[in-house]
Write a protein that binds this DNA or RNA. Structure first.
Length: 436
RNA sequence: GACCCGUUCGUCUAUCGGUUAGGACUCCAGAUUUUCAUUCUGGCAAGAAGGGUUCGACUCCCUUACGGGUCGCCA
């Protein structure tokens, strides 16, 4: 049996991290077992569907790297993949229910008559779950076809899973109580049920339900802030699933390799944005300087900063220091143009030592005389200058950093000197000397 | 309210009947460093409560509490 999983979003809003994780687990499970992952759009609610939402979901999945084997823009033998285009299919299956005498009319709508018995299901995550359908007050017969002739979610969802030969339904825990309904429908339709796995939901840091406007909820916010798709996927995979090792940083391929539904937790997990950023940092560190540069460039351009030929070197100087790509522009602006600003507090701190202040012009002159400029050479000149004046090189180093960057922290001083070059470095030292 | 799922450091988790209950994020301290950061080392911090079962329970059972989910002609 070939594994076939699906992600079936309804295009009524943006892709939510919860939905993204559901899609991810379906994708991972399919990849792990050499199966097929398909995307089906449940657009039966015409009033709430929008093209923008549909596009946002596609874009979000693609950005995360969760490509589908069958579905919109990709085709397949089980289409169409938009429920709005499948009316004839549903009509045919609905007739089976009528023929079998399992539906009856009520106010113009058609209700499905449940078999009044105890329902037992084997959930791949929750284990055995028993729900008693003998109690009619708790489980009233459900509407499957509305009075306007359209079909409700439960019906189309089940029919499509049958038609598309879905073997494993991996979905949010909010569907757990729907499962016996689906099982009954499948039974009445004469189909064989897929295996189910219900994922616990993702909660806010305070334990409340995560909704659209909560931080971290919308997937399209992540690329804007400078998260790498691999990092987001890595982080949400660890929310409710454990690889059973101490390793925390994984590529999509590694995740697919290790994924197992048995290792999905039963308890809902809270979303920790701090850790999500840490994971992103780990992925940024793992990038090559070239790849990091390519990823960072759009953020620098968006900030209105110039992008020179040697931008890769500039980006590399801060690669291991940022957690989000959106931090890059402010981290490198002094390396890209002369119009950067000096941090007042830091300047005051740098001015504290008069002996150092007096040496700045001397240092500039030393820089002038260097015939073969390099960060190391410049540092050596600084050490010489300090030694001659009988002061420690440390404070002078700090003053130099402030003169060059306007702030107290940043990349290695040698790297800064290399990137800035002799003329710019010397000019900044001189300018800073005059500021004092 | 009824029904279902759950409950290990603040958070994500490992351990699945016998462990000093392990790792990671955060936080704190120390080291390194030209300052900050990074990095490294160390530290703080947990089995919801009460009953069983057992030689022995975080691990199994029951009860309570708490959290989440579901009870639509939404999906």
């Amino acid at each position: 049996m070939t594994v076939r999983t699906r992600f079936a979003p309804s295009p009524t809003g943006y892709l939510h991290v919860g939905g993204a994780r559901t899609a991810l687990f379906n994708w991972l499970f399919a990849r792990k077992h050499g199966g097929t992952f398909l995307l089906r759009v449940e657009d039966t609610d015409e009033a709430r569907n929008t093209d923008a939402a549909k596009q946002a979901i596609f874009d979000g999945l693609l950005w995360l790297g969760l490509d589908w084997d069958e579905g919109p823009d990709r085709g397949g033998n089980h289409g169409p993949y938009f429920q709005s285009e499948r009316k004839p299919v549903y009509d045919a299956w609905f007739d089976k229910l009528v023929t079998a005498g399992r539906v009856y009319q009520d106010d113009g709508a058609w209700r499905f008559r449940f078999d009044r018995k105890q329902m037992t299901m084997q959930d791949l995550v929750c284990g055995e779950v028993i729900i008693d359908y003998r109690d009619e007050s708790n489980t009233p017969d459900m509407v499957v076809k509305r009075s306007d002739g359209s079909y409700v979610f439960h019906f189309v969802n089940v029919v499509d899973d049958l038609e598309m030969e879905i073997t494993h339904v991996i979905r949010g825990e909010d569907h757990l109580m729907n499962t016996p309904k689906h099982l009954q429908l499948i039974e009445a339709l004469g189909g064989s049920p897929p295996q189910y796995a219900h994922l616990p939901l993702i909660l806010n840091p305070d334990g409340s339900k995560m909704s659209k406007r909560d931080a971290g909820a919308a997937v399209d916010d992540y690329p804007r802030q400078g998260f790498l798709p691999g990092a987001v996927v890595n982080f949400i995979a660890l929310l409710g699933w454990s690889p059973k090792t101490d390793q925390e940083i994984f590529s999509l391929e590694e995740l697919a390799d290790r994924f197992a539904l048995e290792n999905v937790n039963r308890a809902p997990a809270r979303f920790d944005f701090e850790k999500c950023k840490w994971v992103n940092q780990q992925h940024l560190v793992a990038l090559s300087p070239g790849d990091f540069s390519v990823a960072a460039e759009p953020f620098v351009r968006a900030a209105g900063l110039p992008v020179p030929d040697h931008f890769t070197a500039v980006a590399a100087a801060v690669k291991d220091k940022v957690r989000l790509l959106e931090e890059v522009p402010t981290a490198v602006d002094f390396l890209l143009h002369d119009a950067f600003s000096y941090d007042e507090e830091t300047v005051t701190k740098a001015r504290a030592n008069p002996a150092v202040n007096e040496l700045l012009e001397t240092l500039a002159q030393q820089f002038d005389t260097l015939s073969d400029w390099s960060g190391d050479g410049a540092k050596a000149a600084l050490n010489e200058t300090a030694k001659t004046a009988s002061i420690k090189p440390g404070p002078l180093m700090f003053a130099l950093r402030v003169a060059l960057s306007g702030r107290a922290h940043g990349p290695d001083l040698g790297e800064i000197l290399n990137i800035l070059g002799q003329n710019r470095s010397t000019a900044r030292v001189r300018q800073f000397s005059k500021m004092l």
